[in-house]
């Protein structure tokens, strides 16, 4: 791997690169929107952990979090923003390039 490629590795979006957030962003990239229960079930994270990761992604503008009541019960809906989708696509492309280089060596 060349020096430029190594620099690529250090420049990946760390917000997405963290394993738990990578799972969350992958799910949200695939769907239009999902609620907290679904995300918790699919990611296997605890409520607190998931909540903390979602907050970080929301702060970065990657996702939106909407709270509503459904039959008198609170529901937290999450969806990926355009910025988030772009960041995820960039991350995926960048990582695919790196993997190609690694496999090519």
């Amino acid at each position: 791997m060349s020096e430029v490629d190594l620099r690529d590795l250090t420049e990946v979006d760390r917000l997405i690169h963290e394993p738990a957030r990578l799972v969350i962003t992958t799910i949200l990239y695939t769907v239009k929107e999902a609620d907290f229960t679904f995300l918790q079930r699919e990611s296997g994270l605890t409520k607190g952990n998931l909540s903390s990761h979602l907050s970080k992604l929301e702060e970065a503008g990657y996702i939106t979090i909407r709270k509503q009541f459904l039959e008198k019960k609170p529901q937290t809906l999450c969806a990926m923003t355009k910025t988030g989708r772009k960041a995820f696509e960039d991350y995926r492309d960048q990582f695919n390039q790196i993997m190609k280089h690694i496999n090519g060596v």
Binding site: K32, E33, A34, D35, T37, F38, R41, L77
Partner: peptide
């Protein structure tokens, strides 16, 4: 389903 294991709406 959504009441038990969560709600999801897929991308059209």
């Amino acid at each position: 389903t959504y009441r038990r294991t969560g709600y999801v709406a897929y991308q059209p």
